[in-house]
Simulated assay, not measured.
Amino acid sequence: MTRSVTAVYPAMRDDIGDLVTRRPLPNRELEQISPFLFLNHHGPQVYPPNNRGLPFGPHPHRGFETVTFILEGSLSHLDTGGHESVIHAGGVQWMTAGSGLVHAELSPDVFKRRGGPLEILQLWVNLPADKKFSPPNYTGLQTTEIPKFALSDGVNVELTSGEMAGHTGPIENLTGLMMSVVRAEAGKTFELPAPQGRSVFFYMVTGNASVAGKDVPEHHLAKFDDKDGHITCEAQTDCVILFGHGAPIDEPMVAHGPFVMNTVDEIRDAIVDYQAGKFGNF
């Protein structure tokens, strides 16, 4: 059975200084596609030599996970859980904020010195109440560590987590999330798995496609019904799609800046704990 597209949302432009930024979720009409909370699409753009790099210095998080896809450029990661890495183009950073930590996402010195192309997708994924205080964790994968396979002729998948077409992604996450990057050549028709009871995340990073008979242009997010089966796509141009699915979380949600909890009191606790240094310091 084919899922239907119920709505298509454009990403809103919301630059951060000189960093080109688009945000398809949340938007004016849609707060979340639970468990998916937030996506920032930075770039694509080319940084000149001797640039200042990315502006994401030390900041706290609690109650959710961040999944960062480095499509172009490089991104360094440092957090108070003792994790540190520099991930390059094609790689992924998966961080479980859980009970709370402070991290920084900055451009490596070599990128600031030399400049170059940059494009990054950062997705926030909610955690259920019984996992919000999980120990913080981080995994950084280079492109060579991510399985790549042909879903069909001219359609290739980079599988970060979960299962697709008999392949398994390397990251085992707390909620059984499936996340991938799909690259399709113009004119190719293909099907993406979408089991019933799972919320689908489908963002057109580059290109245009007909999805279940509806046009999904570049920089647009598609929302689907909950039929069991698959999503039928026809690439009208070469496409790059951020695609995943996860179990929705049927719980109250209160988000405040870098904290995502279930109650206002838990948000207050997060602020107090952070200010008291309980998330750690660099």
Rank of each mutant, 00 (worst) to 15 (best):
S180C: 02
E29R: 12
W124T: 05
L159I: 07
A209Y: 11
D250Y: 12
S74Y: 13
F224N: 06
M179I: 05
Q45T: 07
F190N: 04
Q32M: 13
D15Y: 11
G197L: 15
V86C: 04
P117C: 15
G82D: 13
N281Y: 13
L221W: 07
R198Y: 09
P58M: 13
R28Q: 14
P55Q: 05
M261C: 03
V264C: 10
G57T: 15
P195H: 04
F224P: 08
E105M: 02
P10K: 04
T66M: 00
V205A: 06
E31S: 15
P193V: 07
A89S: 02
E163D: 08
V92P: 01
I33L: 06
P252N: 08
L192H: 03
R114V: 14
V102Y: 06
A255E: 13
T2A: 15
K131R: 09
Y203D: 06
P44V: 07
D18F: 14
F279I: 03
F69A: 09
K132Y: 02
P193W: 07
P24L: 01
P26K: 02
G82E: 07
P217M: 04
L151P: 11
D225W: 07
T175S: 09
H219V: 13
R268T: 11
Q45K: 07
K214P: 12
T66I: 01
K148S: 14
Q236K: 12
T6L: 08
V205I: 12
F243P: 00
F190C: 05
A129H: 12
I231F: 01
H256M: 07
V216S: 06
P44F: 08
L78E: 13
T232C: 15
A222F: 09
L192Q: 03
D14W: 15
H83F: 13
D15K: 08
T21I: 14
P58Q: 10
I33C: 04
